[in-house]
Simulated scan of single mutants.
Amino acid sequence: MYLIRLKNRNPFLLLIFILCISMQGYAQKELENKFKPIPSKTPKTKEVIPPTEEAPKVNPPAPVEKPDPSKIDPNELFKNTNLYKQEANVPGIFYRQNQFLGSFKTSTFTSTIRYRDAAFVDGDKIKVYLNDKVIEPEVSMKGEYQGFKITLVPGINKIDFEALNEGSASPNTAEFQVYDDKGAVIESSQWNVGTGYKATIVLYKE
């Protein structure tokens, strides 16, 4: 209604009025774009999330290793006073004790044992046992190899060579060889023991 009156009275005033209204709207829009709210000085409290509890790590028990039945401890073996003469603590004399010649695994059915005097023939004599049973009650050692064949049982086959004397030159000495049923050497060595002591080798048949 007011605009109609202005139009009727003076068109120029109407134009000025419309320009003023447009500029006012534009100014308000500019102020809205430039206005930025002032952040609060009091910071917002962050929500604290409690840490999650982890179950303690439980290490699995270490696997229990089964003892190897082929491994023979000579110290335990020679403790048996019913089978083995005990070591004589004589300074400087190394052969007043039993001698362990080793433990060996094999799949052979039979084994051949050979032996001879290690140095010169001086009258050395031995007795041979297989699993604590006498198989050769008295053998005089010679310069050439002699021996016997045994049938192996599953598990431990223990062979003892007992010195019956020391001949004319101490100790009782011998070279020995152990073969499988195909002629392959399982062990080759020598023993040096005093009278009454034993040299022992173990064949473990798998």
Rank of each mutant, 00 (worst) to 15 (best):
V153E: 13
Q190R: 12
Q28G: 08
P37R: 15
K66W: 02
K182R: 09
E136M: 08
E65W: 01
P137M: 03
L152Q: 03
L130C: 04
L83W: 03
P63E: 15
F148A: 05
D160R: 05
L15V: 12
T151S: 15
N172A: 12
T42D: 10
S168W: 02
P137R: 10
I156P: 00
F12A: 14
T112C: 03
P137A: 09
N98M: 04
K41C: 01
R116C: 09
T151D: 12
A62Y: 04
D180A: 12
K34R: 14
A163W: 00
P39W: 03
V90W: 01
V64D: 05
E144D: 15
S188E: 14
K7Y: 12
K142C: 01
I49W: 06
K133P: 01
S188G: 05
E206G: 05
S170F: 09
V121W: 05
L164G: 07
Y197H: 09
E32G: 04
S168I: 08
I21D: 04
V178E: 00
P39R: 10
E187W: 05
V134A: 07
E175K: 11
N10V: 05
N131Y: 05
N157L: 01
T81N: 09
E175T: 15
P37W: 08
K36M: 08
A169F: 11
E206D: 14
K36I: 13
P154F: 06
L31G: 04
P60S: 08
G147F: 09
T106P: 08
K46Y: 11
Q24R: 04
I126G: 04
S189A: 12
T108A: 15
V178K: 03
N59R: 05
T173M: 09
P154H: 09
E162C: 07
S168M: 12
Q190W: 07
K125N: 13
Q99N: 11
V193F: 01
K105V: 12
Y145G: 02
A55G: 01
K79E: 13
V153R: 08
P67A: 11
V193E: 06
K142R: 12
E30N: 08
V48I: 15
N75P: 00
V134W: 04
L130I: 10
E53M: 12
A184T: 09
Y26P: 00
W191A: 01
V178F: 01
Y145E: 14
M23I: 14
F12G: 10
A199L: 03
